[in-house]
């Protein structure tokens, strides 16, 4: 049911499939590339790294041609994502800024513009609104924020949304604190863009439904769980999202403005088929284990989940926005796995 690809015995910081899924880009932690994203239509790849730079890779007859983008940041770049219209990309960093980058045809280079205030700490994750102007950021200062990244001359003036109507660059359209002050690991807009979800280090997932610009939101719904913290989120439908993190298997949340709840686990370790097989050990096996490792139980160094370590990135894999049927995950164990949303 799930496709498992063990690529290397090293952590994968991020992964991205091309639109036709013929191309998979992964970033490894051997050096310092922290994040990667493939633009589905232009097929351009953007990567960012702890060396404080971003590279845009363009396909050319002689291979991939990299272009260096000056981000003007003094700390590592942590996360990069193309805007849905593929004209801009945003880079989060440890320098308390988000660099919004766009191509300037006149000078034939990528220019970056900084979103600074009111970020107080490292930005862990970024997510684009479908209109390619609003940008959500989760950071170590316990806040999830929604900014405007409107750039004159690049963006068309967007239709008014629940987040705001007239929104110049760096407008803060929403700011939400995690009640226990935990790092916000991941942010994600719902398919319509009218709701924002974020996962924080207190093992919670929060969904925010804004009402109108400058007004208090309709609802801020927090689900605390019995699990270890989630570090990545992926919306599958307007009423369903997948979260994964340090518990090494994805879980599905379902709900609406009336309330959210943890619905079920994908690759649930408690009912995985692998566990039965590994527990079934012969007497010979038992004595061998006792001899080799000084214990009678079967090998317990393997987790019962497919991922053998924390999952760090989830992405939609199959289905259109608003009805995603399969999603892919990558993690510290060097695996890329494709799961179907149905358990």
């Amino acid at each position: 049911m799930s496709e498992v690809h063990l690529l290397f015995h090293q952590p994968i910081a991020d992964h991205s499939f091309s639109a036709d899924r013929s191309l998979l880009a992964v970033s490894r932690d051997t050096k310092t590339v922290t994040s990667v994203d493939i633009a589905p239509n232009t097929r351009r790849i953007v990567t960012c790294s702890q060396d404080r730079n971003a590279l845009v890779w363009e396909p050319s007859p002689t291979g991939w041609k990299p272009t260096l983008v000056l981000l003007r940041i003094n700390r590592a770049a942590t996360h990069v994502r193309w805007s849905p219209d593929e004209t801009k990309f945003a880079v989060g960093s440890g320098a308390r800024v988000i660099a919004v980058c766009y191509f300037e045809g006149e000078n034939d280079w990528w220019v970056s513009k900084h979103i600074k205030k009111p970020l107080r700490s490292t930005v862990f994750s970024l997510a684009w609104h479908p209109n390619s102007v609003l940008l959500a950021a989760g950071s170590a200062d316990a806040h999830a924020r929604v900014f405007s990244s409107f750039i004159k001359g690049v963006d068309q003036r967007p239709e008014p949304t629940v987040w705001g109507e007239r929104i110049p660059f760096n407008t803060v359209c929403g700011e939400y604190i995690n009640s226990s002050g935990g790092w916000v690991h991941s942010v994600a807009f719902s398919p319509s863009g009218n709701a924002l979800a974020f996962a924080a280090h207190d093992s919670s997932v929060t969904v925010v439904y804004p009402s109108a610009p400058e007004q208090p939101p309709h609802a801020v719904l927090s689900v605390t769980t019995q699990m270890l913290p989630f570090v990545t989120l992926c919306w599958t439908r307007e009423d369903q999202l997948v979260a994964a993190g340090h518990d090494c298997h994805p879980v599905v949340f379902e709900g609406n403005m009336g309330g959210w709840r943890l619905a079920y686990s994908v690759d649930d370790p408690r009912k995985s088929a692998g566990s039965g097989a590994s527990q079934e050990s012969s007497a010979l096996n038992m004595f061998r284990q006792m001899d080799l490792k000084g214990k009678s139980s079967a090998d317990d160094t393997n987790l019962k989940t497919i991922h053998q370590n924390s999952i760090t990135i989830l992405r939609p894999y199959e289905g259109r926005a608003g009805n995603v049927t399969k999603f892919s995950s990558s993690g510290v164990d060097g695996r890329v796995v494709v799961f179907s949303v149905k358990s």
Binding site: G181, H201, D202, S204, Q226
Partner: peptide
């Protein structure tokens, strides 16, 4: 009953 989540929350919580 409350899972490892309770421990993580206590470590995280600034209150």
């Amino acid at each position: 009953i409350a899972g490892t989540g309770a421990i993580v929350r206590v470590m995280t919580d600034r209150r």
